[in-house]
Amino acid sequence: MLLVVDHVSCIYGADTNMPVAALKDINLVIKEGEFIGLIGHTGSGKSTLVQHMNGLIKATDGAIYFHGQDIYDGDFDKKNLRSKVGLVFQYPEHQLFEVDVFSDVCFGPKNLGLPKKEVELRAYKALKQVGILDEYFYQSPFDLSGGQKRRVAIAGVLAMEPEVLILDEPTAGLDPKGRDEILSMIKNLQKEMGITVILVSHSMEDVAEYVDRIVVMNKGEILFNAEPKEVFKHYKQLEEIGLAAPAVTYIMEKCKEAGIPVSTEPTTIYEAKQEILKVLVQRK
């Protein structure tokens, strides 16, 4: 068990007259190599939760364990935790600051106190992993397109070689093509390098295809924590909290209502196609 979130609560502005209970008694276990989708409506506490995982926010109540060690222990190395649990913020391109792309990616590993050679090697590898071409390395990060900036920012975290990669809405504000590219790139990282990935999003469509497990949050609480197809069975409940199942789920439900004996389990277009073909072949 890589990361354990144990009865964590978080209250913002506890000493004002408007305290916000952003997290209420959250329990979550994350295993090595998993790809988890963290989904919830705006303000449900997703960003707050992931910032707890690398110790940027201290829980009002509860504990978090990384490799079985309590991260709130006095002698726990927070800096090490932050390099092991890499967090890519919402709109990460807003944190770029260096004169060129390459030095910006070097920032993370450099802060870890690695030798220069190692820093540059890691930066190079990270940039390759996110698919940035060599010709952009020495350009100003501010001259890149939105999608490219986002990749550079992700590389900035990847270069620290984290064990867990958390991405807070990595596809916000990207076009469908940019979105697919980023998501499949992340999937590749998880498959090839065995990184554990937590993907924050508010779109089921985004994650259905890629993740092993979906955690649905609502108003600071975990509502569902299961495989995608299990979660999508509750699509009525999802709608009530302002989310939706992927369009495919709806199509399959409609088919079933119309008397076509398909299973409603498929969550991706490919699976749905297979299922429908299967039923049609049986009919003949």
Partner: peptide, 13 residues
């Protein structure tokens, strides 16, 4: 606050 946190996530001190 946000930028500080983001840079801290990249090991800034």
């Amino acid at each position: 606050d946000k930028i500080m946190k983001a840079q801290m996530a990249r090991g800034a001190n």
